[in-house]
Every structure is written in C-alpha cells, then in structure tokens.
Design a protein around this nucleic acid. Structure first.
Length: 589
RNA sequence: CGGGGCGUGGCGCAGCCUGGCAGCGCGCCUGCUUUGGGAGCAGGAAGUCGAAGGUUCAAAUCCUUUCGCCCCGACCA
C-alpha cells in the first residue's frame, strides 16, 4: 500500500478532551475518529490493528477447539425478560421499539449474548453426545454506558469476542474453562502485551471459577492485588489477605470517655476533630443480610468488602442498611454508630485488624458524640474476627510470607464458570445415556478487542508516538523514500514494496512529497515497527537504512536481497516479539 | 446520578469580564525558493461564533432555555 492512496489523517496537536496516552495517540495517529461520546469510527490504520487483534483471537479460539458463529446484535426483549436481565442491566441495555405493521416490536441491542446462545442451544442440543462444545463470535456489542470515557476503553459500541461453553458435568466444564484460559494466555502473548490473570469473584459455582485478564497500566479503571513474590493476583473484590501479623501496641488501656463531636460524622471529620489518625478509628457499618441487620467493624483507614461479608454470613443479598434501620438499631443518626451500647442487640463482626486497635474511637450511638479509649475484648466482643475488608498495599500475602502490592490495570478478558443460571432460565436441558434430563452447564469467556489495542498503546509509547508490536501494527514495514521525485529511488521503493508483499509482509510506502522531518515524525507517531529509509546516503553504497521503532540506532543492510532480509526480520519478530519485549525490559527498569 | 470545565474555519486556541469590522497558530490551495527529524517568502480559500428565545440602535460578548463534548466521583451482568 502507498501512503498517498490510503487515509492516515495524523495530527500535530492533541484534540481537546483526550487525556490518556492511548486516546491521545489513537486520535493523533489517525487510528480513530470520534462520532459521539463513546462511539468511534475506525480509520484504516485503526481498523487494520483491530482486525489483526481479532484474527489472533480467532486463530487461538479455533486452536482451542471453539467454533465460530455470528449472532445478530438485535434480539427480542422477551428473551431478556426470561432471565431477569432486562431489569438487571437497567439503562445499560439499549432498547428499541421498532414499528412494524402498526405494532411495536421491542428489541434490544445485545450487550452480551448468553440469552441468545442459550436459546439456540436449548433448541439444537438435546443429547450428551453433542457436548462438550464451545461456540464463539466476534461481534459488536452495545451498552449504554452512563459515562463513556478514555477513548476506546469504555464505549457504547465495542468489538468483543464472546465464547460460551456447554458441558454435561463440572469436570467437563473445568476442561472447557482451562482450554479458554490457556487460549487467552496465548492470545495476549502473541499480541505482545504484558498481562496478569487475576482471580475474580466466582459467583454461583464458587471456588476457582473466574479469572480476569488484566494489563497493568497506570490509567486502568480497575485495581488488582498482586504478590510479586509468589505471583498471587486477584481483583479487589476477591483478593484475600493473609494472616495479620502485627501486634496490639504496648500501651495502657484508657478509660472509655464520651466526647462531643458536633457535626463530625465521617472518618475524615472525626479524625480531624479529635486529632487522631484514621487508623485509630473503628468504623461501624450497618448492613442488612437477607433483611436481617448486622454490624461490621473495620479500621477507619480500611474499606469493607461486601463480598467477603456476604460470604461469611452466608447471605444471598447484602446491602448497606437504610438510614431508618440504622437509626432504629443504633438509636442515633447515621454517622455515630459504634459497637458499645447499641440500642438493639445485633450480631457484630469485625475485620481481623480490629483486634489490634488500642484505645480506638467509635461512634457513641448518640448524635454528635464519639467514644475514645474503646478496646476490643474489654468493651465489646464481636461474634468473630475475619477477613472482611479490601486488601491494601503492604498487607500480608495469603499464599506466601511476602506482602501484597496494588496495581491499576485495564481488564481485557474474563473467563467465568456460569453454571446453570441461563440454561435453567431458558430450559436448555440434555438427556444422558440413561435418558435422564439434566440442565446444561455453561461457561462464558469474553475479550474486549479494542482494549487490547488501547492496553498495548497505554503501556508501549514514547513522546513521539505509538510503539506497536509487529503482530498488532497496522503495517509491519514502512518504506520511506527520501526523494520521491527521483526516479531511481522510487523504482527501488516500488520493487521492494512488491517483493515484500509477495513475501507476505505488510508494507506501506510513504510516497508523499514531504520533508524528511514530516515523514519521520509521522512514522514515529503511527509507530510502524520497522522503518526502512531509501535515501542518497545509503544508496551510494548500495545500502538501505533500517530502524526498529523502539531502537535509537539505525542499521545498514544491503540493497541486494533487502526484501529477503526484511522479510526474515519481520517473520522472526512476529512470532517471538523478542525485540519488542527486550525493549520493554530496558525501558521499564 | 452528584460535582466541575468547555463549545469561535478541518485541528488547537484568543476575543466574552467592560456589547461596536471575527482574529491567531497549525493544516489546506497556488507560485517561487528549499530539501535526512514537523522549511522560508508571497498570494489565497474556508467560520450559521453549538442551537433557540430575549435585552439592545447594535450580541461571539449580557439574560433565559436547550443540545453536545470532556474531567472527577457513584455505577459497571
């Protein structure tokens, strides 16, 4: 391809509104163009990269034994009503009323496709002999995001690979799940992104039933908990905390005193008012577990983890108690609850760190008052101490003697053992060898294709622009003829272009009659991995000048056999990402 | 959904407070010179000042309403 015949609208300036590197660079490099909040056109360069990521995903899905199909974006809302997800998704679900013959047909644009695929399978699969099977598609999804942001990281319409496995028993589901997990690792390895599979909330099946694939990046929307020592990684909802090893400070237990704290109801206000650290406060959170009130204690500088609480008390539903309930239970307005002297006797659970608090501060169960000198064991005794809060940096690792770190990350993939939630609701059953009917057991596996690109750019760019890995680059080689008006130069460019194409290399020739600086800067901005300069300096010696995007040094190669040399370099880098990764290691330490 | 910011040629912005010819840089077009890291000179095209209503002799500017975009937070099967 020739630069002058394709469409690469690069920009010198950053469009207003773009904040993070991947968004800025995708716009400036002419990969995408915004149509409205959360909806982007993929321009030729962007589309090429997107398609290449999708193709890698497709190849690895196929290798893992999954089978491709395509479902419509549109589906009848009745299907979603059956699983209760019309309500669960709420406004995120894009709903349309289509006028047809004087009636309205109510449809939704799919945010995911469990309902559609399960409906299909319920009709077409009825025997254990037809399973296991994993079906997938690569298709645009629609979610009416409350707040689209960060370029292609959070959009209302996005390309996603979604796969669904159908199995007869849990053991078989485990094999289907593992095959997807391994395929995901291969996909992200091939793309050249650094990723971390992290344990995530597992839902109905429990156990080791869900992983998120994350690209650690400062601009990620999610946080992951990671132990660099043993590799333990989990998202914040899931992350366990190891045994708390600190001791209570060796100080005298003070007497409980009631102090007036007018208007100070939040942790910040109280700690400022009483001139103490948030860690000296014991906050008392009132929850309702399946409608029954309970109190949870956590240190002022910690965050309660509702999943952990819900699991511990074995409730189906857990929510913060309504203000009315709080007032009834504590006898005080919201913000002044404490474990000592509550109006109603309800179970109290405490995070493990509470046992090491000495002379803590708690609400007094009375408006505008707190208690100081509160000590666990002496002044109150919870039903149990347990791990009930979110992990923070420096907490003990649950799997080894080391400590945890917290990293921001971009979620690019998710694998999940679903169980029978959808097959149950939609009546997807099969007969076993004894003609007994069972509900099909499902798994679902998603990858956000555009997030792979954004994640790669987010973690691989410099001041000049994007640094693509060869497998995802819009073109693998950029030929830069210095003098496009020189016949000899252009002849060489053309024949090299043709030879490289014939050799299966994706090559672009910058045939614009522009100054060297313009062409070099655009080359760096769009980030083609291998740049080949055809100019008088080298040609005098029968040489071409070659430079990898991530290197600073150039290298001369012989014009004779150049196509073969270049094709060899690309073929090697494309399969190993070796140079790309080596660059990573140099830059990141 | 709460808080904040911004809408002025294709892009980035000034002008608004204090009403009086719609400007600057980049890009684009033509010509000449230049030519290995975003060239110089000369000439040129291109704007319903987001939209509607109001105040005024006069509105990009003041008032009201509205639409859109972005950021922070909440939310995210």
């Amino acid at each position: 391809m020739y630069w002058s015949r394709t469409f690469i609208p690069t920009m010198k300036e950053t469009p207003e509104g773009a904040e993070i590197p991947s968004h800025i660079l995708m716009l400036r490099a002419g990969l995408i163009s915004q149509v409205m909040a959360g909806a982007y056109t993929y321009l030729p360069m962007g589309l090429r990269s997107l398609s290449k990521a999708a193709q890698i995903v497709r190849e690895e899905m196929n290798r893992a034994g999954a089978v491709e199909l395509v479902m419509p974006a549109m589906s009848p809302i009745a299907l979603w009503d059956q699983t209760g997800r019309t309500e669960a998704f709420g406004d995120v679900l894009v709903k349309l009323d289509l006028p047809r013959g004087g009636r309205k047909v109510r449809v939704v644009l799919g945010p995911t496709h469990e309902e559609i695929i399960t409906d299909l399978v319920s009709r077409q699969i009825s025997s254990y002999r037809q399973m296991p099977i994993t079906l997938y598609q690569i298709q645009n999804k629609f979610r009416n995001e409350e707040r689209p942001r960060f370029g292609v990281l959070r959009t209302s319409e996005f390309l996603m690979k979604d796969a669904y496995s159908f199995d007869t028993d849990l053991e078989s589901l485990g094999r289907s799940y593992d095959a997807m997990y391994e395929a995901y690792c291969r996909i992200f390895d091939r793309c050249g992104v650094e990723y971390l599979p992290v344990e995530a909330e597992s839902g109905p099946i429990g156990g080791d039933a869900s992983h998120e694939f994350m690209i650690p990046s400062g601009n990620g929307e999610d946080t992951v908990v990671h132990c660099p020592q043993c590799g333990y990684a989990a998202n914040t909802e899931k992350a366990e905390i190891g045994e708390r090893r600190q001791q209570a400070p060796d100080v005298e237990m003070a007497r409980i005193e009631k102090v007036a704290t007018p208007g100070a109801a939040t942790i910040e206000q109280v700690s400022q008012f009483l001139k103490c650290r948030p860690a000296d406060l014991i906050k008392t959170l009132l929850y309702e577990a399946d409608g029954k009130p309970l109190a949870v204690l956590a240190r002022g500088d910690h965050e309660a983890n509702e999943n952990k609480i819900r699991r511990m008390v074995g409730a189906d539903r857990l929510e913060l108690a309504a203000p009315g309930t709080i007032e009834r239970v504590t006898g005080a307005p919201v913000g002044f609850a404490g474990p000592v002297g509550m109006a109603e006797k309800i179970p109290i659970y405490a995070d493990a760190d509470i046992q090491f608090v000495r002379n803590g501060v708690t609400g007094a169960n009375e408006a505008d008052a707190h208690l100081t000198g509160v000590n666990p064991g002496r002044d109150f005794e919870p039903e149990a101490y347990a791990d009930l809060r979110n992990a923070t940096a420096g907490d003990p690792c649950p799997r080894c003697p080391s400590v945890l770190t917290i990293r921001e990350a971009i979620e690019v993939g998710h694998v999940f053992k679903l169980g029978t939630k959808y097959s149950e609701a939609l009546g997807a059953r099969f007969a076993d060898s004894k003609e007994q009917l069972h509900t099909i057991i499902m798994g679902c596996y998603g990858i956000g294709i555009a997030r792979i690109l954004a994640g790669l750019i987010e973690t691989n760019h410099d001041a000049a622009g994007i640094i693509w890995s060869v497998p995802l680059a819009p073109y693998e080689v950029l030929l830069v003829p210095m003098k496009v008006k020189d016949e000899e130069t252009m002849k060489i460019a053309q024949s090299l272009h043709d030879e490289l194409e014939a050799a299966g290399v994706e090559v672009l020739v910058d045939d614009r009659d522009a100054r060297a600086g313009v062409k070099f800067n655009d080359a760096d901005l769009v980030g083609f991995p291998l740049r080949v300069v055809i100019g008088p300096r080298g040609l005098k010696e029968g040489k071409l000048e070659v430079k990898w995007r991530w290197d600073t040094e150039t290298e001369m190669i012989d014009l004779d056999g150049a196509a073969k040399t270049l094709a060899g370099l690309i073929a090697e880098e494309k399969t190993t990402n070796a140079r790309f990764r080596a660059r990573d290691d140099n830059e990141k330490d």
